[in-house]
Amino acid sequence: MPHDAAVSSVSSRLKLLALFAVFLLPMAVAWGMVEWRLGIPEGRIAHGQLTPDLPALEDWPLAEVAKQGEDDWVLAFDCPADCDAQADRWWRLHRALGRDAHRISRLRLGGSGEVLPGAAAAAWTEAAAWRSPGRLWVFDPDGRAVLAYAPDVETAQVLEDLELLLERNPESPMARLHAE
């Protein structure tokens, strides 16, 4: 009988140690990761180019800049003379945002022809140093340029960045009431 009691005591102690390990081991591993910077990703980088030096949209040499909602992000693309395919591409991206599509306004800069539904057009009044035909810019609700994309960027990359921006900058709960 004493042998059974000793085995039971060892078994109980092993169970207790296993329980401590279950709770303390993750904290020790996390502390080690933070202390020695092991296994921590360097961070996510946007697919577009960050543009902190560009002036606010209201300071761009454009005529009649308009967006649909006061708190909208703006997706502005510099349209060369013939940009129907590009305009359609950004229209489709806008639709792909689904329930967050109402938080984005599209703005075609330059170009001619009919503007697609849900977009506004603005004409350049003079050439800007940063102007680049085919380039796409993303502006925050305050009109600051956040990201710029080259004409050959993949649409999926822009969509991924926009979804992340909208997720990290949630809509104010009062925004829908204010709009009504």
Score class of each variant (00 low, 15 high):
A85N: 01
D152H: 13
W90R: 01
A175S: 15
L75S: 01
L75H: 00
A121G: 11
R44G: 11
L93S: 04
R92D: 08
L54C: 07
G98M: 03
R168E: 09
I104S: 02
I45N: 09
R37K: 14
A150W: 04
W60L: 06
A96C: 09
W73E: 04
A85C: 00
F77E: 01
R176I: 02
L50I: 12
H47R: 10
L50K: 10
S172W: 11
L54M: 12
P133T: 06
E171R: 15
E64C: 00
A101L: 01
P55N: 08
L50W: 08
I45K: 13
L165Q: 06
Q86H: 04
R37T: 10
D53S: 14
A66L: 09
P141V: 08
E114V: 03
R106S: 10
E35W: 12
L164N: 14
E154Y: 08
D82T: 13
G98Q: 06
R135A: 15
G113Q: 08
V146K: 06
S112P: 07
N169Q: 10
E64S: 00
L166A: 09
C83W: 00
A56E: 12
R108L: 10
E167F: 15
E154L: 15
P173A: 07
M174F: 09
L162T: 04
A46D: 09
V115L: 06
G69E: 13
I45T: 13
D59M: 11
L109Y: 07
R135T: 12
S172P: 07
D161E: 03
A96S: 15
S105Q: 04
D84R: 10
E154H: 14
P61K: 02
W124I: 02
L109E: 02
